[in-house]
Amino acid sequence: MIFTIVFIHELGHAVTARFFKWTIYKIELLPFGGVAEVEDTSNKPFHEELIVILAGPVQHLWMMVLSYYCIALPFWSTYDHQLFIWHNMMILLFNVLPILPLDGGRLLQLLFMYRFPYAQAITVMRNVSLFFLLVLCFIASVIYLSLHLWMILIFLLIIHYLEWKQRYYTFMKFILGKQSSSIFTKQANVHVSNLITVKEAVKLCKRGSSLTFNYFDPTVGKHVQLHEEIIRVAYLDRKRIHHRICDLTPAQF
């Protein structure tokens, strides 16, 4: 019963992702849950990822309604219905916790990415997720002792460690994705110091936005505009990563 619920939940993610023509690598069903592995979403439109995330939890609603109407059938008893509802509710409520890679964590991370630069959003969400995960570990140790819960928590702790270890690679994928993607929802301006380095400036890049950096250059006595593409190219050139943005000019590229 649990595997069926988890499979339909993950299938909701996968079918919706397929609708948006995302690449789906695999769906894993584990003893304590499931994972739908899709292509990198760091430069996907916000509305697409929002719908894909919600497509999983929504499946529980129609499954519970269907279970109610199946009570009248000979193969589905009241006990089956109550057990099915219990499993659905537990999986749904656990899944909406603000912990990565659960759907609740992904939703909160998407909100952070909408409001803040990508690098800041990832860092803040990692800390928030780890806080709630440690709270769950405390509950599992003191209040509610459960081997099944500890299996899930250990799995989530390993995921957090691997995500932290690959944080530089994750950010590079975001930057490279912006290089090859023309999907921007808006143009935006950001005012910075002329002394800010390329490494610091690139961390201001936002998902779904194409930034124009504005700074005052005292050497020429006027304000200068620099498109983020120049910053990204300089960042990918490891020799220029510590250069100040005032040292970059469009003519250099």
Rank of each mutant, 00 (worst) to 15 (best):
F32W: 14
E28V: 00
I71G: 00
G12D: 04
V142H: 12
Y25R: 15
K26M: 05
I51S: 02
R232W: 14
L149Y: 02
I231E: 00
L153T: 07
A36H: 06
E228A: 02
V142W: 11
Y161G: 12
F84R: 09
M151G: 14
C70L: 14
H9A: 08
L83M: 04
I122M: 12
H13S: 03
K206R: 14
I8Y: 07
N43G: 08
Y25Q: 12
L153E: 07
L93H: 12
S181D: 03
I158S: 14
L133E: 05
W22N: 03
E200P: 01
A17Q: 01
F171S: 06
E39D: 06
L248G: 02
F46V: 05
P74K: 09
I196T: 14
L107A: 06
L93T: 15
L11D: 02
F171I: 04
M151P: 02
L133H: 13
T197Y: 13
N43E: 09
V38L: 09
L195E: 11
L149H: 01
Y69I: 09
Q59K: 09
T197W: 06
H9E: 08
E39I: 04
Q225M: 13
I152L: 13
G12C: 10
T197P: 02
T123Y: 07
F213T: 01
V6P: 00
G33V: 11
N43I: 14
Y25A: 06
L162A: 11
M125E: 07
L130F: 09
S42H: 02
V58T: 08
L111P: 01
I245C: 11
I183K: 10
L130W: 08
A36I: 09
T123G: 03
A140F: 04
G105A: 03
M63K: 13
P101Y: 04
S141K: 04
G105Y: 01
R240Y: 07
S181Y: 01
G221D: 15
A121H: 10
Y25D: 10
Y169W: 03
I143D: 07
I158E: 13
I27F: 10
L102H: 06
L102K: 02
R207M: 05
L156M: 08
L176I: 05
V202I: 15
R126Q: 13
S77E: 13
F138L: 15
K199A: 15
G34I: 12
P45Y: 08
L211V: 08
V15D: 02
K26Q: 13
T197E: 13
F138Y: 11
A201Y: 06
A36L: 14
K44V: 08
Q252P: 02
G221E: 13
T4H: 10
V202D: 10
I175R: 04
P250V: 02
M125Y: 01
Q252K: 12
N95M: 09
C246W: 11
I53D: 07
V128Y: 03
K239C: 10
Q82I: 04
Y118T: 04
R167C: 00
H47D: 12
V192S: 06
